[in-house]
């Protein structure tokens, strides 16, 4: 397990009238080499959870094992840089962290901070930009004059250039159009399948969870309510609705078909398989 939480608790603004317990006794193992979705309503503790993964927030109680480090409550850990290089965290709306004059310099900023030479940093920046689909013509442009979607790609490349083994993304597709969302999710899928990165995505988009993720963590009221594999999770749409989660459209279609007398097997998870299934039954009667 690259990351595990043991009875982790976290409180914001401790000792003030605004005190607020954001995490409560969280126990969690994050599997290596998978794409895990972290879902849950706003205020359920998702963002607080992911900020513990690279020690931006330190636990108030319990302990966290991240790769070969142990972070216990009350510790004042040093040399967090090494950890932050291994666990790349992409914040929500990361385009707001761009600041360099050129795209290439901005992407090289991370590797340089982690001790790479100028040359090495540029090399890695170029690789990362290629991964996110930005060609050479963008290298010398100012990141501030790109479109929203391109800016976000640059920001994500900035984290990828650090070559982390774990990639954590807080709502990476928020505000993108459907096409931009699709391209972004395909990138994370490739990073996982081709480059073997462990990926953690905080999201509200069930269609993307259904299509691209392996595991699902549901946060509720500062705790982990459910942690299971994706197919098990979506096999009970009623349970999803009880947690205020609208099941993906394919699952809803299956429900509707079943309610109208069609037989739909549980293991159908693609549009083509569903179309086959419907066609077979309609033709049988025809």
């Amino acid at each position: 397990m690259p990351i595990s939480f043991e009875h982790v608790g976290y409180v914001y603004s401790k000792g003030t009238p605004y005190e607020y317990q954001a995490l409560k006794d969280v126990c969690l193992d994050i599997e290596e080499g998978k794409i895990t979705a972290v879902i849950g309503q706003t205020g359920s503790g998702k963002s607080t959870l992911v900020q513990h993964l690279n020690a931006l927030l330190l636990p108030e109680s319990g302990e966290i094992h991240i790769l070969d480090r142990v972070i216990k409550a009350g510790d004042k850990p040093k040399h967090l840089k090494a950890l932050r290089k291994e666990v790349g965290l992409v914040f929500q709306f990361p385009e707001y962290q761009l600041f360099e004059e050129t795209v290439l310099k901005d992407v090289a900023f991370g590797p340089k901070n982690f001790g790479a030479s100028e040359e090495e940093a540029k090399k890695r920046a170029k690789q990362a930009l290629k991964l996110v689909g930005l060609s050479e013509e963008y290298y010398e442009r100012s990141p501030l004059e790109l479109s929203g979607g391109q800016k976000r790609r640059v920001a994500i490349a900035g984290i990828l250039a650090m070559d982390p083994s774990i990639l954590v993304l807080d709502e990476p597709t928020a505000g993108l159009d459907p096409q931009g969302t699709e391209a972004m999710m395909k990138l994370f899928y490739e990073l996982n399948h081709t480059y073997g990165k462990t990926v953690l995505i905080v999201t509200h988009d069930m269609e993307q969870v259904f299509r691209y993720c392996d595991r699902v963590i549901v946060m509720e009221d500062g705790g982990v309510r459910i942690h299971t594999d994706k197919d098990t999770f979506f096999s009970d749409p009623e349970a999803c609705r009880k947690m205020n989660i609208l099941p993906p459209v394919l699952i809803r279609m299956k429900e509707l078909l079943k309610a109208n007398g069609f037989e739909v097997a549980d293991d159908i998870i693609t549009e083509d398989a569903l179309a086959d299934c419907i066609a077979r039954q309609v033709k049988k009667h025809g």
Binding site: M253, N260, G261, F262, D272, A275, D276, A279
Partner: peptide, 26 residues
Amino acid sequence: KLAKRGVQVGKHITMEGLVRELCQSH
């Protein structure tokens, strides 16, 4: 996708509409 599989149904913009028609032919 259904048309490709030889099942002709009308163009519906909601799932409910599609399933209703499928049911009738079913």
